[in-house]
Simulated assay, not measured.
Amino acid sequence: MGKKNDYEDEEMTVELELDDGSVVNCAVITILTVKEKDYIVLLPIDENGENQDGEVWFYSYSENPDDPNEEPVLDYIEDDDEYEIVAEAFDEYLDSCEFDELTEESDT
């Protein structure tokens, strides 16, 4: 994962190699923990850093606790029920973000 330290608000991105061998650059939206497993939410972006369709991708996410410098492992979520649980957790995450933005705006 590439993280640039030039700007604090610079978003983290990850390059994802698809089954067909093509590589897609994705912005990391968040990492969610659901039922003691971690999942990463990715937003595919083009070379201009923009997303065309608003679709996000969910993957299971794991790091090697013995080697923090090792690349994290992303895996497809094969199970439909597991995918639904992650999608619901992401919806809750979005709701909390919108709530935070609303409260921040009203404080100013």
Results as ranks from 00 to 15, higher is better:
Glu98Asp: 14
Leu43Trp: 03
Leu74Arg: 14
Val14Ser: 11
Glu84His: 01
Asp81Val: 07
Cys26Tyr: 05
Phe99Arg: 12
Glu55Ile: 13
Asp75Met: 14
Phe58Gln: 13
Cys97Ile: 15
Asn51Arg: 01
Thr33Val: 06
Glu84Tyr: 00
Ile45Glu: 12
Gly2Cys: 07
Asn48His: 13
Thr108Lys: 12
Lys37Ala: 06
Phe99Lys: 15
Asp107Tyr: 06
Asn64Gln: 01
Glu36Gln: 03
Phe58Thr: 08
Asp107Val: 01
Gly49Thr: 06
Ile45Leu: 14
Thr13Gln: 09
Val56Phe: 06
Thr13Gly: 07
Asp53Trp: 03
Ala27Ile: 02
Ser60Glu: 04
Gly2Arg: 05
Met12Thr: 15
Asn48Ala: 11
Ile40Leu: 08
Glu8Tyr: 03
Glu88Ala: 01
Glu70Arg: 00
Glu71Ser: 09
Met1Arg: 08
Phe99Met: 10
Ser60Ile: 03
Val86Ile: 06
Val14Tyr: 14
Asp53Val: 07
Glu55Pro: 01
Tyr7Pro: 02
Ala27Gly: 02
Glu92Ile: 03
Glu36Met: 02
Phe58Leu: 13
Thr30His: 04
Asp53Glu: 15
Ile40Lys: 10
Leu18Gln: 12
Glu84Gly: 00
Tyr93Ser: 09
Glu92Gly: 03
Val34Gly: 02
Glu104Ser: 11
Glu10Thr: 07
Ser62Thr: 14
Val23Gln: 08
Leu32Val: 01
Asp107Phe: 03
Val73Met: 13
Ala27Glu: 05
Tyr7Glu: 09
Ser106Thr: 08
Gln52Gly: 10
Glu78Cys: 11
Gly54Arg: 10
Leu32Tyr: 01
Met12Leu: 14
Ala87Thr: 08
Asp107Gly: 01
Glu70Ser: 01
Leu32Thr: 02
Glu47Val: 05
Gly2Ser: 07
Asn25Lys: 11
Val23Lys: 12
Ala27Thr: 04
Gln52Arg: 05
Glu36Pro: 00
Leu16Pro: 04
Thr30Ala: 08
Val24Gln: 08
